[in-house]
Design a protein around this nucleic acid. Structure first.
Lengths: 199, 199
DNA sequence: AATATTTTTGACCACTCGGTCAATAACGGA
DNA sequence: TCCGTTATTGACCGAGTGGTCAAAAATATT
């Protein structure tokens, strides 16, 4: 019934995610979106709503596909500390790629862009960033349970340290991408967790 | 000779700095600037040039007036480690103030905003951020010289760790302003420098 | 083949953007 | 008081912004 869609929904969201990632929310115009997706404005608005709705889909997709979800406990390795190390390595490696590294992380970028606002959209963004943080919380909790980290560790603080390191690696890579410097950030986070293991 | 200015140059730059700090470069319109300064566009353009020139003045002023310059070696305390601790404390304290804390740091904000570009302006911004980093370099070097930090410390890496902590405190405060969490960041940087002292 | 339903198209909207400019106003010096 | 110089004013510019909509096109059903 009705005329069928000519575009692939997920493919469009994926393209939109990339352009928001590269240019930010404010920096991305509807013309950017139409040219990168091949759709025109009318199609976009009837299928997705407005720029803000599209951005929400993009951010959700980015987080869902991103490395934070790929290194969940037990999915890559039964060892949570190893999962953390692998994640840091992946972030550092991606930061070495000239174009990709300079983009930072869409979630963190958005947190920076919307951080000093107080709108529905800014609250949505911050909630999504907090979902990222909870991933580190789970990792640290699991590492405590398996005995890989000390029982006396303050999980909330330790998780924040591990989370901060990921933030710093991703975002500082925009202007300081040197691998050994980013590794310092990861390694001092690991040291602060009480493990001897390094990135 | 000629009609005298009706505005105070430094006062205007100061107001402009605040609005760029609060809204970012892209997020600040010329109307924002005219309404915050009381000048109209013509005056602004004849006195300062364009939006970009105004932004350069603002960023320079921000860095010149900021805490990074206030805690130079010997100016507050002859003890460089103490200067670092004082600086962290100041950053953490400012992050507690609801509106101010959410603004982060104009220099870092700008680094984030321009990081993935390659224009004259983006290069200017990155140079300014690097000037901030060199402040930490001097601090660490001085601390080594006075014996407050170990002679075996790698200054480049140590300075980057100290610098990263400042970055993280200022920028993560936008969405995670809790004092004890930000103190964790400062304290693990201090620990990584090999000192027992804490914020 | 006609119809109901949905998608696509591209022209169009009001508004804002950064930036310009000629006219006017305010001064110091002659 | 007139003149040269500089500052202020406000209207104006083309381009771009996010968003809308009526008409046309493509399908399944009858």
């Amino acid at each position: 019934m009705g005329r069928p869609r000519e575009f692939n929904y997920e493919h469009v969201v994926s393209k939109v995610t990339e352009v928001f990632w590269a240019k930010g929310f404010q920096g991305t115009s509807l013309d950017d979106i139409t040219s990168v997706t091949g759709l025109n404005k009318g199609s976009i608005y009837s299928s997705f709503g407005n720029k803000e709705a599209l951005f929400r889909l993009a951010l959700r997709k980015y987080i869902g596909d991103g490395p934070f979800n790929q290194f969940r406990v037990g999915e890559i390795s039964p060892d949570p500390v190893n999962a953390l190390i692998q994640l840091y390595r992946k972030l550092i490696n991606e930061s070495q790629m000239a174009k990709l590294g300079k983009r930072g992380c869409l979630a963190f970028n958005s947190g920076m862009e919307f951080g000093n606002q107080n709108t529905k959209l800014s609250r949505f963004v911050i909630e999504e960033v907090e979902r990222l943080e909870s991933f580190f919380h789970e990792l640290v909790e699991e590492a405590k349970a398996t005995g890989a980290l000390s029982k006396s560790l303050d999980v909330r603080k330790a998780a924040f340290r591990a989370f901060s390191a990921a933030f710093t690696i991703r975002e500082m890579a925009k202007f300081r991408p040197e691998r050994d410097l980013l590794a310092e950030v990861a390694n001092s986070a690991l040291a602060s967790l009480g493990t001897e293991r390094r990135v």
